[in-house]
Structure formats: C-alpha cells, structure tokens
Simulated assay, not measured.
Amino acid sequence: MSQSAQKAVTQSVIRRYLNKETLKYVFTTHFWGPVSNFGIPLAAIYDLKKDPEMISGPMTTALIMYSGVFMKFALTVQPKNFLLFGCHVVNSLAQTGQAMRFVNYHYLGGAESKAKNDAVADSAPAPAVKEE
C-alpha cells in the first residue's frame, strides 16, 4: 500500500470514529455506566474457578434477575444502549454458570463427591523423597 493510500485510510478511520458524535458518546453515562458495570460479569467469570461451596444461591439468583431487568431497560431507553445490554448478557450467562455450579454442588451430589475425593487424597501415602 502506498504512502498516500495509507494516509487516506488513516484519515478515513479518524473521521469515521473520532468525530464529535463519538466523543460526545464516550463522555456520557450511556458509555461509562456499562463500562464500569462490566466489573460484575468479570468477577463472576473469575469466580467460575473458585470452590462452589462459596457460591451464594440467593445472591446468584438476584444477580440473574437484576441482569434480566437491565437487559430489558437497555433496549427500552432511547437511544438503545447496546453496551449495557451486552454487559448484562455476559453477566446473566456467567451468573447462570455459577447457579448451575451451586445446584450441582448442593443438590446433585457435588459436595459428597468432593468429600469422597478429599478423603481419598488424604489417605493416599505421601510420595517418597529421594535423598542424594
């Protein structure tokens, strides 16, 4: 690509994405609200690796319902806030994963399975250490 073509493409991108409307949007709560709200689904995704014993069933249920309400809200406000909608879609998926882990652990035998595995691991002999 020639130098002048690169310059034209760069200017086109700048004109298209770095204009008054975009900057006006970035400095509103329509943008920063969902961006700051993304901490909730990111925490839920991070927590998917933690022990399911620590999951709160009522709180997970509340967060799923909260995200459902705000998904509806994001599509009702004018202009529609697709960033907020996406944030709550991710949150509801992550919280649903947590809810499935909660149900599996507390109601479908996950706790007993974990206890059995822990007992087997505790009774296993320690590996021999080679001395030189």
Rank of each mutant, 00 (worst) to 15 (best):
E131F: 00
A8I: 10
L63S: 06
S92H: 03
A74H: 02
H106F: 10
V77I: 15
F102D: 03
S36N: 11
I40T: 09
A111K: 10
Y105V: 00
S113C: 13
Y105I: 01
F31G: 02
T22H: 09
A119I: 08
K130F: 07
P79G: 03
A74M: 08
P125I: 02
K24W: 06
G57W: 00
S4I: 07
Q3E: 14
A8S: 03
M100Q: 11
Q98G: 03
V89E: 05
V90N: 05
S56F: 00
T96W: 04
F73A: 11
P52N: 00
T96P: 06
I55Q: 00
C87G: 06
T22C: 15
F31R: 03
F82V: 11
L48E: 13
D47C: 04
F102L: 05
Y105G: 00
F102H: 07
A115V: 12
K72N: 15
K24H: 12
S67E: 04
L18F: 08
A43C: 12
A119D: 15
T28P: 09
K50R: 14
V13H: 13
K80Q: 15
M59W: 02
L75W: 04
G97N: 01
L108E: 09
L23T: 06
P58D: 08
Y105D: 01
K20D: 15
F85M: 10
V89D: 07
N104V: 04
N81K: 01
T76N: 12
G110F: 01
H30Q: 14
L108P: 02
R101V: 01
K24A: 14
P125Q: 05
L42P: 03
K24S: 14
A94L: 04
A74Q: 02
H30I: 04
V120A: 13
N81Y: 00
S12T: 09
F102Q: 01
M71A: 08
Q95T: 04
S2D: 14
A128G: 10
F82T: 08
F38V: 06
K20R: 14
A121M: 14
D122Q: 13
D118I: 08
Y66W: 12
Q6I: 12
A128Y: 00
E21C: 07
S12Y: 05
L18A: 13
H106A: 06
N81D: 08
K116L: 15
D47K: 00
V69P: 03
K50S: 13
K114M: 14
L75K: 07
L108F: 11
F82Y: 13
Q78N: 15
S12R: 06
P58A: 02
A43H: 08
K49T: 11
L108S: 02
C87P: 07
K50A: 12
Y25P: 13
P58W: 00
D47N: 10
P41C: 01
I40L: 11
S2N: 10
V120L: 15
T22G: 11
L108C: 09
T96Q: 04
L48T: 04
C87F: 02
V35N: 04
K72A: 14
A94Q: 05
T61K: 03
P79L: 05
L83E: 02
V129G: 00
F70L: 14
T28H: 06
V26R: 01
F38D: 04
K7H: 12
Q98L: 08
P41R: 01
D118P: 11
I64D: 10
A121P: 07
L84N: 04
D118Q: 13
H106D: 09
I55L: 03
V103I: 13
R101C: 01
Y105K: 01
